[in-house]
Amino acid sequence: MISFIRIDDRMIHGQTVTRWALEYPCDGLIAVNDAAASNPVLKEAYKSASGKKTFVWTKEHFKEVSEKVIKSPTKYFLITKNPLDMKELLVDFGFKPGMDRIIVGPCNDRPGTTKLGNNQSITQEEAQALEDLTNAGYTVEFALIKEKSIGEWPKFRGQFGF
């Protein structure tokens, strides 16, 4: 089962595991990112970062095993590195995680991004993915940690022409 959904460009780090696990208990983490899952060194680094049962999968592998994840009594965080991957899992693949809130954490400043808050900047393409997620029934909230939420997607969508 999925107990928490997060988009975080660092994927797995102490804040994700320690702070968010207080709000949303979890037994393990599922990070979905093709590049990380295809790099043995990076994959092992992520797997050893949390102290919890951790999987680092490609999007295709996630698609193949997603029903097992839902049926599992184990509570997992589902994490992607960017909004595009999350949109692919939840909208394009049609994965139904059993919850409708997505927390967007760090999205570093990069060329071509619009800054929404501290360490939270997105591109037009990522904004479209967040719009698609919202249109599919998900609530998207920007929060590095729960106490520091800067708001939900409707507050920011006008900056991207929606």
Rank of each mutant, 00 (worst) to 15 (best):
A49R: 07
L78G: 06
Y24W: 14
F77A: 08
I2W: 00
T80A: 09
I103W: 00
K148V: 00
S48A: 07
E88H: 14
Q120I: 15
T123R: 13
E131S: 11
G51T: 03
Y138V: 05
K81G: 04
R157P: 04
S66K: 15
L42N: 04
G98S: 11
I145D: 05
L133M: 15
L29C: 07
Q120G: 00
V104M: 01
D92E: 09
T54F: 03
K87G: 02
P97M: 10
A31S: 05
F55S: 13
N108D: 04
F162L: 10
K59V: 12
S48T: 11
T139R: 10
V65W: 10
W20R: 13
D9K: 03
A129I: 03
I102C: 04
V104C: 05
I70H: 09
H13G: 01
N118W: 03
R19A: 14
N135E: 14
V65H: 14
Q124R: 12
S50P: 09
G14A: 14
R10P: 01
E44Y: 00
E147K: 13
D8A: 06
L144K: 02
A37M: 07
I12L: 13
P73A: 12
T16C: 08
P111I: 06
C26K: 11
L133K: 08
C107L: 06
P97C: 11
K96P: 01
F160E: 15
D92N: 10
G161M: 04
V104D: 00
Y46Q: 09
D85Y: 06
K87H: 12
A143G: 07
T16A: 07
E141K: 09
S149V: 06
A37I: 08
T74G: 02
Y76D: 09
S3I: 12
M11R: 09
G51R: 00
A37S: 10
K75Y: 02
F55D: 05
D132A: 14
F162G: 11
S72A: 13
D109K: 12
I5W: 03
V56E: 05
E141A: 02
P73H: 13
K115G: 01
F162V: 12
V17H: 02
T58S: 11
E147W: 08
R6E: 08
Q120W: 01
P73D: 15
I102A: 04
G94E: 03
R110P: 00
I5Y: 02
N39F: 02
S72P: 15
F162M: 05
I122K: 02
C107R: 10
S121R: 06
T123L: 10
K43S: 14
Y138A: 06
K81V: 04
G161D: 11
R19D: 15
A35L: 12
G158H: 09
L84M: 11
N119Q: 13
L78N: 09
I145P: 00
L89F: 12
Y24K: 12
G105A: 06
E44G: 07
V104A: 01
Q159M: 14
Q15E: 12
P154N: 10
G117S: 15
K43Q: 14
A129Y: 03
I150N: 14
K87Y: 03
R110Y: 03
D92S: 11
P40T: 04
G151E: 10
E60Q: 14
H61A: 15
E131W: 08
K47L: 07
I7Q: 01
S121M: 04
N82S: 08
S72K: 10
Q120D: 01
G137K: 04
